[in-house]
Design a binder for these strands. Sequence first.
RNA 1: GGGAGCGUAGCUCAGUUGGAUAGAGCAUCUGCCUUCUAAGCAGAGGGUCGCGUGUUCGAGUCACGCCGCUCCUACCA
Length: 671
Amino acid sequence: MYLQLQNRLMTHVREFLTRKYPEITLPEIVIEQPPKIELGEFALPVALKLARGLRKAPLKIAQEIVDEMPLPEGFASFEVAGAGYINARLDRTAAAGVVAGTLGNAAATGNAVLPAAGARGKVLVEHTSINPNKAAHIGHLRNSILGDTLVRLLRAANFKVDVQNYIDNTGVQVADVVVGFEQMAKVSEQEIDALIAEPRFDYYCWDLYARVSQWYEADKTHLEARRATLHALETGGNQTATLAQKISMAVLHRHLETMQRLGIEYDFLPQESDILHLHFWAKAFELLKAAGVLYYEENGKNKGCWVMTRPGKVKDAPVGADGAASEADEAAGPDEDAKVIVRSNGTVGYVGKDIAYHLWKFGLLGLDFGYRKFSEYADGRHVWISCDPKDAEPGAPHFGGVDAIYNVIDARQSEPQETVKQAILLMGNADAAARYTHFSYEMVALTPRCAMELGYAVSEEDQKRSYIEVSGRKGFGVKADDLLDKLIDAAQSEVDTRHPELEVEDRREIATQIAVGALRYFMLKFTKQSVIAFDFREALSFEGETGPYVQYAVVRASNIFRKAGLEPEAALAATIAPAALDNDNDLWELWLAAGQTSKVIEQCIASTEPAGLTKHAFQLAQQFNNFYHHHHILTEEDAAKKALLLSTAAVVRRELMKAMDVLGIPVPRVM
RNA sequence: GGGAGCGUAGCUCAGUUGGAUAGAGCAUCUGCCUUCUAAGCAGAGGGUCGCGUGUUCGAGUCACGCCGCUCCUACCA
């Protein structure tokens, strides 16, 4: 609702100002919200910005505009305020009608500003992408929750989204656990099968991986085993590679189970082994050479390598002076800082493979994976995994070839991400490069106190730091399933005392929903670029700015309707009392806040920052709790007033549930 | 050395493209359960927005310079 009216106001003001002041170029029309609702719903600082160009006092300009500008539909007044603001007031009754969805057609509802489903194009979100060699930890959780929420945001805004989880099944990390099984611990294949059958095989790998790292450190000659194993995995078609695939697929299943607990699902799992065996790189290499993006270095420390100019170091193309420029370059010697893509021994680094993979994402490679089913979700949808096209399932869907991509990858990888993006750009795909978004976020670390609580030795130096980085290699961190288990236990004891009348399974289900809500909210409330210093005390909190606070507000709203024996939709359809809204700013603010959910979702997508929606949900819940405390709805005697209060509760409940759905926070029946 | 980011209340963090009196939560203190559930509500204290200069009607926000912290910068993945 808010977004729709804001757009209407913006267009209206721009058209008016263009007519009134044809002699000057208009500044961007900025629309804000006044600090207090008494001042109106929208504030335009445009007169302040016009002051210099027009050489006139802002207040005078504002007055001129207010005197002459007609009111757009749905608005009640314009007035001058403060140092020269123009504040706009809405026709509250009409606006409330739009929010409630009672005013006629679908075009009046909040969704009218959105294009039809799928009309915004097909996008690809890659997230999770955990090395399949150990259990997921809290850092991975942040990745998956951010990624899944981005997916939900995009889908709520009518994008068609494919979700990918990249599987690096031939990398060093998988090689390390294979070394652990085969050479260090000497576990037989039969024993491995038995371990895989255990509920949490990934936990076993977590410990084994840490042990292998120590094993390497104890004797550097052990590193030869890693090198040989890595080579075996890359080549494929041998016993070690088969074992590695068995292990990594088992761990992958565990990862999907863990994420499923949080409501996170995927469409496609591209495997690195297939990128290798289907020769994606060879094809990309040809394209890169042909486009002149890669060049063969003849001199200097990178002699014999195929290299690429580092992002940010691309020379400002001296138009018309190419000859002179390249002479100057040659005189300066080889670019020692260039990024090596193909080593002098002819092998390609992971950035090269990543370029090939990303060309595929945009449909620019000219090669494709085969697709077969990997697993099935409760609703019958399948997760697909890559394979050789000759093993592909008939009728399988096709992935890739999308309009835009989002890579949810932590901030430490922004350099290689920039390199891939630049390669795509330099190949002449400016459009694809512009739609390549590295959704960068900071890591989750542990507070020193938390690390010590977990029994890790923390040096005195580390104790002074505000956080300590987790390390899978050292086995240092909090496992995702452990954290979720802890949260469920904590929620369970609350539910048990509050609702002893419920069946055990019901209490368990509610505790799980609360735990998931708490965890997802916790991971989303911080902005992306902020390092989360993880602490159990904060993460296990169910009070204040948390998921359960928001859930509780919805449960309270639902209780009202349950007790009243009324459907919330019926309350929305009921006539509301316009006069009461005009005179009750507190109530009106609640309607206005609820009407902003769609706007917030759009802002979150534009800024690729889901934290804005958690803030919105919390503030809306807070305002609702305030409202809940001030009004005794069911005992209200004035029928018109009661109807208004009920419709207010219904609107807030609906918008809160919409926000929670996008955030992936479940709505418990009771709390 | 080069690149990126951060520095806001005791702690953890928000702060829209420069706007009206810098906000939350936690922690501390004080009140409120016979009501639609207190996982809640009301209130109090707590700030040199790292430091400085500049840009302008106006700076937490923009520019420049310092100070402090973090990450990236391998023919590792």
